[in-house]
Design a protein around this nucleic acid. Structure first.
Lengths: 124, 124
DNA sequence: CTACATGCAAACCCTTTGCAGGCTG
DNA sequence: CAGCCTGCAAAGGGTTTGCATGTAG
């Protein structure tokens, strides 16, 4: 893995947020001024294939990446301010297993997003 | 609501599948040869706002629409052949309620998609 | 020398938008 | 006439790709 690619992975792992390709690009650029967005995309695609990072669709118009927890986990998204809360929830894993039994599918991953209004936004 | 828009809604309701904008366009065209894709998109957007149809992201590169069950429900998607199975599952509703209590969010909808390999594709 | 990595720009694809003409009431 | 509905074409935005150059082993 090249230094640039390492940098992309590091940026994703070092951030608690779920960065977009554009954001990753912006944060890698100080250290690698010559890096292009295309390289970032190619790298993200590679890391995703390798299972190093998780690609998320938070319904914001572009993809987000999470390097902290490779296993799928649910998100709670505020439709007012865009805040994203990661959920630690194991019920869905059990649900996956139940579903495998009842449908015969071999489930490889799941995506569960809950949309709503966060406590702060409810006040306004 | 204009006849064309009624036709768009009807196509979605009459189909068990989750049609894409392009597919809706193709099925409305026999009755309304002059209809344009732009009108289909505008109508789908309107119907979504009205809460008549549900917009789904099945990770196929474009959006799908479901007019049968306006309330969110989970899907099981085969990553090999693209088959989509609707899941009747009430555990997620309970989960929503639990989550509201623990996070203070007011949850308006949820999206849950399980990806895997269907029984047929597992044979090959 | 072979293979892979990179930057640039163009291409892609689905979706949205601007606009002028039509239709309705 | 006011206001919405329509089709067309163009624009839009995130992502992908082709290609020539650069780099490493």
């Amino acid at each position: 893995m090249t230094p640039q690619r390492m940098a992309v992975l590091k940026v994703i792992i070092d951030n608690e947020e779920h960065l977009t390709a554009e954001q990753v690009y912006g944060r890698v650029k100080p250290d690698f001024p010559m890096i292009s967005l295309a390289t970032v995309y190619k790298t993200l695609s590679m890391l995703k294939e390798m299972g190093e990072i998780l690609e998320l669709d938070l319904h914001t118009g572009c993809k987000h990446y999470d390097g902290h927890r490779i296993f799928s986990h649910p998100h709670l998204i505020c439709t007012e301010c865009g805040a994203v809360v990661d959920i630690e929830e194991h019920d869905l894993s059990n649900l996956s297993q139940d579903m495998e039994k009842s449908t015969g599918f071999e489930i490889t991953k799941f995506q569960a997003n809950f949309f709503g209004i966060c406590p702060q936004c409810q006040k306004h």
